[in-house]
Computed example of a mutant assay.
Amino acid sequence: MRTIVYADGGCDPNPGPGGWGVVIQAPEGTVELCGGDPQSTNNRMELTAAIRALEHFPEGSALEMRCDSQYVVKSVTEWIRGWKAKGWRTTTGPVKNIDLMQRLDELAARRDVRWVWVRGHAGEAGNERADRLAAQGRREALGLPPRPAPAAPAAAPTLAAVPAPEVPRGTSLAIDGALGLRVARAAKQAGTTPQAYVEDVLRLALDLGPDGLSAARATLEARKAPAA
């Protein structure tokens, strides 16, 4: 029987501070792992998540690795064999992220891994949790404390029923043309839809909070500043 594993990672901005998260649905209970890097890329964080997950298991373990990164899944299942035959080179030069690719190949070769791509932010609980852990890893990379756990809901009134406020089913956000074009381009690079990309960015902003956003913005501005 294979152990189900979810791995996810990402940066904001990309490149920039990143995080990775892993959810291992082991028979004896769920195991969660996360970490971050103050300067990385989306692809490196996705690869790191898969590597940290595999490192958790001894050689010979049977597992099903579920990732929402086609870059990771296709690298292992389609591309690595050809890269190795060509001395870890592509038609345009050395394989990108070769250090992580070689480590991933080494670990996967010693374990019985079934690689499965899952659609991100599609409601699959393990994937959603791995995404939140990656956000926690980004906070750690920025030197921020973990987000506090949500407060427990208040006890329901006992003397009289209080009607719940009406909540709108959706919220429309106006985006100007230039920003919309940037979103469309970024979503295409990420391999997702503009709607899903915007939701991911908003979710990350809420995870980081005002302090985290300020720290991330300061890091970005420092990186853009010309060298003295």
Rank of each mutant, 00 (worst) to 15 (best):
56 H>Y: 13
89 R>C: 03
92 T>Y: 13
75 S>C: 13
99 D>L: 14
117 W>T: 11
127 N>R: 06
79 W>C: 05
56 H>V: 00
104 L>N: 03
61 S>F: 00
65 M>P: 04
39 Q>W: 05
42 N>D: 14
114 R>K: 12
71 Y>E: 07
34 C>D: 02
45 M>L: 11
59 E>N: 13
125 A>M: 12
106 E>C: 00
124 E>H: 03
109 A>S: 15
64 E>S: 13
78 E>H: 10
97 N>C: 05
127 N>A: 09
28 E>P: 07
55 E>M: 12
53 A>H: 04
38 P>K: 12
26 A>Q: 02
30 T>P: 08
119 R>A: 15
46 E>N: 04
28 E>Q: 14
76 V>H: 02
118 V>P: 00
63 L>E: 06
123 G>R: 08
67 C>L: 10
68 D>S: 07
91 T>G: 10
59 E>T: 15
96 K>Y: 01
115 W>N: 02
58 P>G: 05
57 F>Q: 07
111 R>Q: 06
99 D>S: 12
76 V>F: 07
63 L>N: 00
32 E>N: 00
35 G>P: 03
119 R>L: 13
89 R>D: 01
90 T>P: 14
101 M>H: 14
43 N>Y: 15
94 P>E: 15
97 N>D: 12
53 A>S: 12
97 N>Y: 09
123 G>S: 14
110 R>W: 04
104 L>I: 11
34 C>F: 12
26 A>H: 10
93 G>V: 05
121 H>A: 05
96 K>V: 12
74 K>P: 01
62 A>V: 11
38 P>T: 06
77 T>C: 08
76 V>G: 06
71 Y>K: 06
122 A>D: 12
119 R>K: 15
35 G>H: 09
31 V>E: 04
108 A>F: 00
66 R>D: 01
72 V>H: 08
65 M>I: 14
116 V>L: 04
107 L>T: 09
26 A>L: 04
78 E>A: 11
29 G>V: 01
79 W>M: 03
111 R>N: 10
85 A>L: 11
42 N>E: 13
66 R>C: 08
88 W>Q: 01
87 G>L: 10
